[in-house]
Nucleic acid binder design. Sequence first.
DNA 1: ACTCTGGTTCAAGACGCG
DNA 2: TTAATTGAACCAGAGT
DNA 3: CGCGTCC
Length: 268
Amino acid sequence: MGIKGLMKFLQDAAPKAIREIDSQQAYTGRLMAIDASMCLYQFMIMIRENRSGSYQNLTNAEGQETSHIVGMLSRTIRLMENGIKPVYVFDGKPPELKLGELAARRQKREQAEANLQAAVEAGNAEEVLKSTKMTTRVTKEHNEQTKTLLGLMGVPVVDAPSEAEATCAALCRDGKVYAAATEDADCLTFGTKVLVRNLMAAESQKKQILEVSLERALEQLNISMDQFIDFCILSGCDYCDTLKGVGPSTAIKLLMQHGTIEKVIEEL
DNA sequence: ACTCTGGTTCAAGACGCG
DNA sequence: TTAATTGAACCAGAGT
DNA sequence: CGCGTCC
């Protein structure tokens, strides 16, 4: 999914497009688009506590999960303390083209539930945790509650018509935000001018903040934006079947050779 | 021997105290 | 008709 | 840093 290894490819083929950033301070005063749905998913998975053998999310007095609230609150406060102005983008309806994968994932999930049952009975804590994570979901209510929280904090929220990443990219392309802060390189395909990686993970996980410039990537690859999109399609993306035997390396070669995706296809 | 693809598997927050 | 990620790291195997 | 807590 996504374009496999796109970041790695860019690091090899267009290193000048990638800049190392010292700290979050570099973005003081800047608007940054963030995929909220992705954040929530991670919060629901990670913010838990082992209570009597089962790994449960944090909850309020009524037993409603609150992990997403705690996670979003602390993360957003940290960003704001550094003067960053986050714009959270929520997923809309999944694109039709992704529905095809639904059956396979449902099966996986059912298996995880069975796995969980077995692990509980066997008292295998590690396995319980793993299976619990695999069965974790983010509901519509979690999303709504988070939007309310952000609203109260004065943080702007955007509802994407479909995929959040596409809307993050559009916001950046149209100059509404400085960059899209995401790990998803697909954002570049959608036209993000600037993509910031590891914005959150930098401090806690000792990762380097990386800033990717779409313009400089195109420059260095010596291709146009249209060609870059063609390149991504050839490499294999969410929206169509992959070509057998064609990954990023082959795709860029073919494209350099023939110029457009249409001519590449003709040659095959 | 080397390169590349493709399948599988795994891990994923943030804070503060000592 | 609830809600269902994602990428990176690793390894096997095909192609050159 | 390791570990417990956050609700």
